[in-house]
Amino acid sequence: MARKRRGIPIHGWLNIDKDAGLSSAQVVGRVKRIMNAAKAGHAGTLDPFATGILPIALGEATKTVSYITDDSKEYRFTARWGEKRNTDDIEGEIEATSDIRPTREDILNILPSFTGTIRQYPPAFSAIKINGERAYKLARAGQDIDMPEREVRIESLSLIEIVDTEHAIFEVTCGKGTYIRSLARDIAVKLGTVAHLSALRRIRVGPFLEMDAISLDKLAKLWQCPAEFEGLLPITTALDDIPALAVTEPQAIRLRHGNDVAAPNQADGFVCAMDGNIPIGIAKIEADRMYPVRIFNL
């Protein structure tokens, strides 16, 4: 007999502004404790030293996490010139130094080479699996790691401010799988120097925006009156790019039981089947038939 899940069923999304020093898993744990939620997960890991947008899926919204992790993301980051660290961020140990400090002109000249589809090596201290083991565990054990190169998509990259000779602030819009620590490291190499991230903040994940995010402290205060809480976003927040399609009550019943239904004159592709204002689930239309893919138990 399956063990009953503790907590109450809450379904939807939270736009959490993560504090520095917390892992993404720790944020999920705190959200569950604050809300006494039965089920929660996050969309897109943030490094502990980083801050910013961490979308949290609750209940049946966890079935839509993949649609958020595939969305583009925006980051604001600070490169600290002259120090290479083994983690490529402020938390690592210094491995090399350089006296070269790039000028604004130097930086602006090389930025176009980091837009579009580029190739990068993920940091050794990352969660990528190497022969079944997490890379960061191997790195902490002092093992040499041959990180696999990968293609990533950089939609835009801008120099925002040169703070001083040691620091420059950038903003980047990128696709899934991009490591900002690697980006800062590779920019420095292109400029003939070394660098690491001294600050990293995620300012957008798909439809989740910085200006709408709430901190864990604010969540704790607002959730004291759950009936008045307005920060819980609908499950369909993650499905903005998927068209909604209304179905009849008999069709809704069939879909909820895992059966396909007729969908004449509908274009092939994925849709969010709707029973009035209630999302039934994600379905795929093919050859005038609609097939359930992920059904929400609401």
Rank of each mutant, 00 (worst) to 15 (best):
D17L: 13
A20M: 13
Q26E: 15
A37V: 08
A38E: 14
K39G: 06
A50R: 05
I53W: 04
L58T: 04
L58A: 04
L58N: 02
A61M: 12
A61K: 12
T62V: 02
K63G: 08
K73N: 07
N86I: 10
T87G: 11
D88S: 12
D99P: 14
E105M: 06
D106H: 14
L108E: 15
F114N: 07
T115C: 15
S126P: 02
I128Y: 01
I130L: 05
G132V: 09
R134E: 13
R134C: 11
R134G: 10
A135G: 13
Y136K: 11
Y136M: 10
K137A: 13
L138M: 11
D144R: 08
P148H: 12
E161V: 02
T165P: 02
C174A: 09
R181Q: 09
S182E: 10
L183Y: 06
L191W: 01
G192R: 01
G192A: 03
T193E: 00
H196V: 13
L200M: 09
L200P: 02
V205K: 03
V205H: 09
E210D: 15
A213E: 04
L216S: 08
K221S: 13
L222A: 12
E230M: 02
L232K: 07
T237N: 10
A238F: 08
I242P: 02
I242E: 02
P243F: 04
T248M: 00
E249A: 03
M274G: 11
P279D: 10
I280G: 01
D288W: 04
Y291I: 13
Y291V: 11
P292Q: 05
V293G: 00
V293W: 00
I295G: 05
